[in-house]
Nucleic acid binder design. Structure first.
Lengths: 136, 136
DNA sequence: TCTCTCTTTAGACTTATTCTAAATGCAGAC
DNA sequence: GTCTGCATTTAGAATAAGTCTAAAGAGAGA
C-alpha cells in the first residue's frame, strides 16, 4: 500500500493524516510482526525529520484502534501489540520466541456463535500456542 | 474442595503448603470470578491473622501457575487474571462489564490442530466477546 | 490576521509487577 | 535442644507500560 492510499484510508476512517500518523500507519500496514508501542516508536522515529514523542505514538495507536484501522492483540501478560491486519483471522504464538503469526480466518472452521441463552456472541478470537517449525 | 484436599493438591504439585498459599489457593478454587492479583489480595487478607504482603500474593500466584494449579487469563490489555479451572475450556468476555465466564470445552467443537507445516499446535484458547443477556 | 480546534510534546503521574535484601520459619544434623 | 541451611515472606524500592497534564504548535476558515 502506498502513501496516497494510506492517506485516503486514514481520511476515510476519520483520522486526520499528519506526518506522525502517516509513518506509524505506514509501518504497521507493511509489517507482519505484531509490534508493541515501543517497537513502533523505535521503527518509525528515524523516518521523521525530528523527534517523535512516546505520547504521540500511544495517542496515534489508540486513535487508529478506535477508528478500526488496526487492532490490539494481547497474547501475553503486560504487553499490548498492534496488528494492521483487520480481516478476520486468528493468531499462532510460538512458545519459544513469543512471536505471533496471523492465521487466516478461512484456515479454521467457523464456529457457530451459539453459547446458549446467556451469551450473545459478537466475535471471537482463537489463539493457538505451539512450536514454530524452523525448517519450514 | 476442602482444606485437606487443597493441601494435598499443593503437595502433589510440588508447592509446599503455607498459610498464605492455602488461603490464596482456597479462594481461587472456590470462585468463578477471574480475579486480578489485587482482587486476590483484597479477598484473602482478612482470612489470615496478620497482614499479607502484596509480594507474597504475586509470588504465590506465579508459583501456582508454574505448578499448573491455576492458569493466567489475559483478555484485556494490562490486566492479568487467574483461573483455577484448569480443565479444557474457553472464555466469554462481556463487552460491557468486562466480566469473564468459563465456557466448557465440550460446548465448542474441537478444532483440528492442523495449521500446516510451519505450525505445530500444542493447545489453543478461544475468547468470545459479546453481550451477557441480563435476564438469563 | 485572528481565532478555534485539533495535534503534539515533555515530563509527571499511575498502575501493575518484579526485585532486593533482610527477617522469619521450619527441617534435618548433631 | 540447638545449630545450620534453605525456602518463604516481607516492606519498600525499582521497573515497565501506559495515561494525564498543561503548554506550545499548526492548519482551516472567518
Amino acid at each position: 500500500m502506498e502513501a496516497a492510499e494510506i492517506e485516503e484510508l486514514l481520511t476515510r476512517k476519520g483520522v486526520k493524516p499528519t506526518p506522525q500518523r502517516m509513518v506509524i500507519a505506514d509501518f504497521l500496514l507493511h509489517t507482519f510482526s505484531h509490534p508493541t508501542a515501543d517497537e513502533v516508536l523505535a521503527a518509525v522515529e528515524n523516518r521523521l525529520p525530528c523527534a517523535l514523542s512516546r505520547a504521540t505514538v500511544y495517542n496515534t495507536l489508540n486513535s487508529l484502534v478506535a477508528a478500526g484501522v488496526i487492532q490490539e492483540v494481547v497474547t501475553e501478560a503486560g504487553k499490548t501489540r498492534y496488528d494492521a491486519n483487520i480481516s478476520e483471522h486468528h493468531h499462532f504464538v510460538d512458545r519459544k520466541s513469543g512471536r505471533i503469526f496471523d492465521i487466516p480466518g478461512d484456515m479454521v472452521p467457523k464456529l457457530k456463535d451459539n453459547l446458549g441463552d446467556k451469551f450473545q456472541v459478537h466475535n471471537y478470537q482463537i489463539t493457538f500456542y505451539g512450536d514454530l517449525l524452523e525448517d519450514a
